[in-house]
Amino acid sequence: MNNKVSLNRHDELPLKHDKANLFLEIMMAITVFLFAVALSGYFLVSALTGNWNTSVKGSLTVQIMPATETLTEEEQSLRINKVITYFENLPGVDKVLLVSDKQMQQLMSPWLGETTDINDLPLPKLLDVYLTDEDFDYQQASSGLKEVAPYASVNNHRLWLHRLLQLADSVKSLAWAILLLVLIVCVLSVFYATCTSLGIHKDIIEILHIMGATDDYVAKQYAYRGLKIGFFSGLVGIVMAFCAFAMLSHVASDMEQGLIGDLSLNPLHKVMLLLLPPATALICMLTSYFAVKRTLRKIM
């Protein structure tokens, strides 16, 4: 008896050698890369808008005209205290803090450099007013301030932040649209690659049918191939995406953060991105399976 016979199970359909596999692998890797980028963009914009919303709802800035030659230091301090007292007595105000000279120096350093002494410049004094009430009446506070201290004005962030938030919402909607499109491209690529492969292997499938194979038996072989291609390509795509994020993060770290803040993903978002390869594998597997079942019912 010949003992050399290979006892390993060989799939009846030679799907490993399909020419469409490479196309599918490249398509899936690009798809996962784009999906990861769009999803990360969504996460980052969501985090940024969250911060902005908090800022808008939680604080306002008051600007007091700079001291003039006719105004002594003492008089300027009195004017500042008057404004502080005014805000501290308003309902919905948590605390009022004067922006110190050191903080002002830091704020102005991108434009004036580190060496310029801001005390030599006629800069306004700034107050940070922290609010406890989300429904704080900005209009009333502003008009009241005009009466009490006409030399001071409220900087309402709401208008420009509202526009920024609208832009951010548009970016988030765009990210959703990209995610949806990428998903559709992924499903269609797998579907048509599977249909092409079914055409290539029609003779073998016919023989398998004659021997009693169900559509399910054939579909499972395609589903297994879809699972492998999806997972492998998903890994490649996500590695590419993480490389791109690392580069972006490196570039962003050289820039002033300011409003944009930290351009890095939190651990939860990273875990969600790492779930993309298994999710892609699942999508490829299910698409292959149902594509085979549907196509075989039509053509055989």
Binding site: S6, H10, I207, M211, G212
Partner: peptide, 23 residues
């Protein structure tokens, strides 16, 4: 499919799966 499992067929042109072994 279940009925076909009860039928054995020998084709004139064999119709073997050429990429697989005899086994």
């Amino acid at each position: 499919a279940l009925m076909r499992r009860r039928i054995g067929v020998v084709f004139q042109d064999f119709r073997l799966l050429e990429h697989l072994s005899a086994y």
